[in-house]
């Protein structure tokens, strides 16, 4: 699997990361090496093997529909880098 700088740009955009050119070049080469190594898995025949997400077969773990009082707003917002009127503030999103 060849990893190109365009692919690194694409996944960087999806991850909201922006690598300076020098870092991008290095990262591309490293990812290529790592992905090439991962291709070792192609040697393993997994046809017909069900992918396992949860290692133990838990199911139907639920809670009852009962209200618990919500948190204290000041506390919940206390770590916000920009807070106003009981809300987090971000650059405008509405066009």
């Amino acid at each position: 699997m060849k990893i190109t700088e365009e692919m690194v740009d694409y996944i960087s955009q999806l991850s909201r990361l922006q690598l300076p050119q020098e870092e991008k070049t290095a990262m591309t080469a490293q990812l290529e090496g790592i992905v090439a190594y991962m291709d070792v898995l192609n040697r393993l025949d997994t046809s017909g093997v069900e992918p396992v997400s949860h290692i133990f077969p838990l199911k139907n773990v639920t809670r009852s529909d009962e209200v618990v009082p919500s948190g204290d707003r000041e506390e919940l917002l206390a770590n916000g880098p920009a807070v106003k009127d009981g809300a987090f503030l971000v650059p405008k999103t509405v066009e």
Partner: peptide, 14 residues
């Protein structure tokens, strides 16, 4: 090719 394959491999390892 990668993620699903890894989850299948996990099943084989288990």
């Amino acid at each position: 090719a990668y993620y699903k394959k890894a989850l299948q491999t996990k099943a084989v390892i288990k």
